[in-house]
Design a protein around this nucleic acid. Sequence first.
DNA 1: TTAAGTGTATTATATCCGTAATACAGTTTC
DNA 2: GAAACTGTATTACGGATATAATACACTTAA
Lengths: 129, 129
Amino acid sequence: MVSFEGFAISGSLPIYTQLILYIKRGIVAGTVCGGDELPSRRVLSALLGVNPNTVQKAYHLLEEEGIIESRSGARSFVTADGELKLRLRAELLEQDAAAWISAMKQMGLTREEALRMTEVMWDKTGGEA
Amino acid sequence: MVSFEGFAISGSLPIYTQLILYIKRGIVAGTVCGGDELPSRRVLSALLGVNPNTVQKAYHLLEEEGIIESRSGARSFVTADGELKLRLRAELLEQDAAAWISAMKQMGLTREEALRMTEVMWDKTGGEA
DNA sequence: TTAAGTGTATTATATCCGTAATACAGTTTC
DNA sequence: GAAACTGTATTACGGATATAATACACTTAA
């Protein structure tokens, strides 16, 4: 069962987008694997304090991308092979890095200043190693 | 006069938010300075192919933050002293770094992998040194 | 002084996001 | 088989975003 313990709504992105990102990044990290069952729309919406339609939209879009599968009446589950995992990793890393580097360049930082910034902030923030 | 040559609408953020970010990052970079005149609402909206109300919203919010000033009838201009520049630099850098590092940790990257990612992508993208 | 440009405000419309309340058919489980 | 749960769909409402069309008073420049 895919866990949503580490998930929290934050920022200005639409909630369904945040849910999609959480699943995709979990697949890249290996914490979400092919065959894993997903919480039902109703259960997850109640857990997060969010409308069922919002979860439905996220699941529906994930299914259109071939990342999860739904059979009417039964619980949905993840369909993630190694190829998809690699595709997602490349997509998300490039996307995030491009946004970060673009912002740094717009503010006039040099490459070394950006690297030092990453080093300093990495340990200040919680999460992982 | 503040130039919007390097500005382009992109991504999912509201247009008025992108305009605000462009001004703020320009101030941090030093390309936008106190006393600089801003394009009028009508001129800038025509230049960007955007509704005048969208530019008005961005300018209005910037004025509420004390970053620009408007006199009814005359052109608006930037009011940015050194203190504001430092405040903006700290705010924006921390905000962007936090988003970037959080994404990397969610995908299970180590600190060194994130640093290497920055190094590799820095030269691949256009902009500055 | 007159004309042009400017900031500001209003009303209307359309789309997206999120919530709310249902409804129905399919599956799982007892 | 029956109850509970599931995916799916619909309608309605409010807020935010963006567009469109005006309108008015103020400043600037010719």
